[in-house]
């Protein structure tokens, strides 16, 4: 089942190639900005990369990353954490596509270009159903082709600083159900000084990152399965957040 026209599939292929060819330039630039301007650090970076590398080797089927969402550059930090630029050069398929809000990231030429080469499929949240469906069809296609995709199931940055289960969109459940053998990698990411949501993380943030892989199964079908799977993902992320705060003694 393919919901994309040849032209759209071809455009994604070109975008993928453009991203891969230019990767050393923009990846180095962005990582330098995060490391030296933001002074961001990822805790246990080596272990995280080893875990992800092993996962990509052993898991059969596409992986959908589902993460909590507190800043506008979460997907950048995720991709930086999961593998080195060199690893992405060797296999760009492990670089995660993501779905940024068009209104936030497509306002100027530089951001548009970075989003293009950085494997973004823009989405118009609250836009027409056709436009939203088209974006979701693209990521469904990419997942089926074995690419990795990141989604933020809360649909936006958490306004409370904690995972907002009531904001969870069931679209993530639909995505999983549409892609056979789809695994979900739940990721909990948080800067140590991140109390609430913000545009970018606070300077000097040290990022805690925890991951849990699972394959959602549902006894239901149709919309109930969609809701069930979305609830399973939400439940996991909430538990991961509780574990984070319990460990932090809060």
């Amino acid at each position: 089942m393919n919901d994309l026209k040849f032209k759209e599939r071809f455009a994604l292929k070109i975008q993928y190639m453009a991203g891969w060819v230019t990767l050393p330039f923009w990846s180095t630039l962005l990582i330098a900005l995060m490391r030296f301007v933001g002074r961001y650090r990822i805790q246990h970076l080596r272990e995280i990369r080893r875990y992800y590398k092993n996962l990509k080797r052993t898991v059969e089927g596409p992986i959908l990353l589902c993460s909590n969402h507190l800043t506008k550059i979460d997907s950048l930090i995720l991709n930086w954490s999961l593998a080195s630029t060199w690893s992405y050069m060797k296999s760009f398929k492990i670089f995660s596509w993501n779905l940024p809000e068009r209104a936030n990231f497509y306002q100027n030429y530089i951001l548009r270009t970075l989003c293009y080469v950085g494997s973004c499929v823009p989405i118009d949240r609250g836009g027409s159903r056709e436009a939203v469906k088209k974006s979701l069809d693209k990521v469904t296609y990419l997942l089926r082709k074995g690419h990795t995709v990141t989604v933020f199931p809360e649909g936006g940055r958490s306004r409370t600083g904690r995972i907002q289960e009531d904001k969870f969109t069931y679209g993530v459940g639909r995505l999983v159900n549409k892609v056979s053998n789809c695994h979900v990698l739940c990721v909990y990411l948080r800067g140590h000084n991140q109390k609430n949501y913000s545009d970018i993380p606070h300077k000097g943030a040290r990022f805690y990152m925890n991951m849990e892989l699972f394959k959602p199964e549902s006894a239901y079908s149709g919309l109930r399965a969609t809701r069930d799977v979305a609830n399973q993902i939400a439940g996991r992320l909430v538990r991961m957040e509780q574990a984070y705060f319990a460990a932090a003694g809060q």
């Binding site: 159903r129 649909g155 009531d166 969870f168 069931y170 639909r174 149709g222 919309l223 109930r224």
Partner: peptide, 26 residues
């Protein structure tokens, strides 16, 4: 909240004993 639309459609299913697929729900 748009996230609640699926719950609403599922309530339609229960109340009217019907089945609605994803595309119809959209």
């Amino acid at each position: 909240n748009s996230a609640r639309l699926v719950d609403i459609v599922l309530d339609f299913e229960d109340a009217f004993d019907i089945e609605v697929d994803d595309d119809d729900a959209d």
